[in-house]
């Protein structure tokens, strides 16, 4: 099996260079090489979106990428954030403050088993990042959330509590919804 050398930034930490098998998926790289298991395997074929991670584009904007169907090579020299990387932590690694979307998912009881939560957290983070640049009209907000999260699969709570939590965060964050007039 061939090897490739991998470097990237994951959750703010430089990773690599590391030699890994050339066919390693990003999900396996996170799990087996970095021991970051917060990103979940759901289907392994890019359908359920439990495995989504956040990648920073060159212009600083964020996108979600499915880690189960993308080779680790795609992430070389990228800045990647996984579900472990959104909360603010102190020097000892203890959580000091959650991202607003994480807090909202907690308060809405959005998840039960929690396996799909990392994908929803990451997709919602990217949606919020997009709305900072491209605010949405209030009447389009529900459709915008539905479009952003439409592929994610949840088997416990039936989506309702995720969607309403995202809506709450967007509505309560200044600048994400276009002001009337």
């Amino acid at each position: 099996m061939g090897k490739i050398s991998v470097t990237m930034v994951v959750n703010g930490d430089k990773v690599g260079p590391m030699e890994v098998s050339e066919y390693t998926s990003m999900l396996d790289f996170l799990h087996e090489y970095l021991n970051l298991t917060g990103t979940k395997l759901g289907c392994g074929i890019g359908v359920c979106r439990a495995c989504e991670v956040v990648v920073e584009r060159d212009d600083g904007s964020l996108e979600v990428v499915r880690s189960c169907i993308n080779n680790v090579g795609r992430f070389i020299d990228k800045k990647v954030t996984t579900v472990e990387g959104h909360a603010r932590r102190n020097a000892d690694g203890e959580i000091e403050q959650l991202a607003p979307i994480q807090q909202a998912f907690l308060e809405h009881f959005s998840f039960q088993c929690g396996w799909c939560t990392p994908g929803f957290v990451n997709a919602a983070m990217v949606l919020i990042d997009r709305l900072k640049r491209e605010p949405v009209a209030a009447e389009d907000l529900e459709a915008t959330i539905s479009e952003a999260l439409q592929h994610h699969i949840c088997r416990c709570t039936g989506y309702v509590r995720y969607f309403r939590a995202v809506k709450d965060v967007i509505e309560s964050t200044p600048g994400l919804v276009k002001s009337e007039g």
């Binding site: 970051l36 579900v83 959580i95 994480q102 998912f105 907690l106 929690g114």
Partner: peptide, 19 residues
């Protein structure tokens, strides 16, 4: 206010057997 296991689940902590 939230689930007792909520913080672990929303931050990707290892808690599942598969992890």
């Amino acid at each position: 206010a939230f689930r007792t296991d909520g913080l672990a689940k929303v931050t990707g902590h290892k808690i599942y057997g598969r992890d």
